[in-house]
Amino acid sequence: MTLGTRIRTGLVLSPPLLWTIVFMFVPYTILLVYSFWRAQFPLFVPDFQLGNYRTLITDPQYLNVLLRTLKIAGLVSISAVILAYPYAYFLVFKVRRPGVRLALYMAVVAPLWVSYLLRAYTWKTILGTQGILNSFLISTGVLDEPSSVFLYNHTAMVLTLTYVFIPFMVMPIYAALEKIPPSLIEASRDLGEGAFATFRKVTLPLSLTGVIAGFTMTFCLSFGDFIAPFLVGGPDGAMVANVIASQFGAALNWPLGSALALVMLVLVLGIISVSDRFERLGHGRLE
């Protein structure tokens, strides 16, 4: 490289590089450093010890929150895939008219342009005691008075998060299904397999990369979610993100919050790298 091209390359690359350093690398480093400090109310004492991590492992409340978060994220991903796969399949293989297909696809994707907070809040108004669900059940005579069982529990969280993140499941599955050449499905039928066996042996394996991508995105987004537990989760609905927030806020234990944040980051990165490996395995097939 000549000096001129070096300078030009440097000029082009420096803003994103600077951005990455200032807003990613530096904060994570601070987080890492903090996670080894000690909290001595109301101060944080610089140190290098693993006490915060030990607390996370030994104090069951943190493990519980972590397990609860994993459970919620898992349930959200599973219910999203159960809803999204048939929908995407229907769009790609059953809807003949491109206009109708686009409209139905946009119906799922368009809510992404609406504020996330608003979409989550919607469920509070649907499930609450003054909500649509209660008034419907009362007007149809199923209930005599408003029930509070719908809101502030895990089901409400799973419902809300599934609703909020389902576009991230539909999009990759749709893309994967659309990429399958119709002739492959015809070939399977031609070679003597019925519709279901064709789905099992051709369509499903070839769309698995989309499922993995969607599952990863939905899982990671739910895993780090802060709003849904806050709005519809109720007293024992706190997830990891809420606990981290409280450590940096009311609990005033930044070192412990940092350690928890790092544990969460490592978990998410682990999930992403595993799913990335699976996806790579599936790629190169449909070239």
């Binding site: 002739s183 492959l184 015809e186 051709v202 394996p205 070839l206 599936g282 097939r285 070239e287």
Partner: peptide, 9 residues
């Protein structure tokens, strides 16, 4: 088939 339609997986 024209595009052979071999199962890539």
């Amino acid at each position: 088939f024209q595009d052979y339609a071999l199962f890539p997986h």
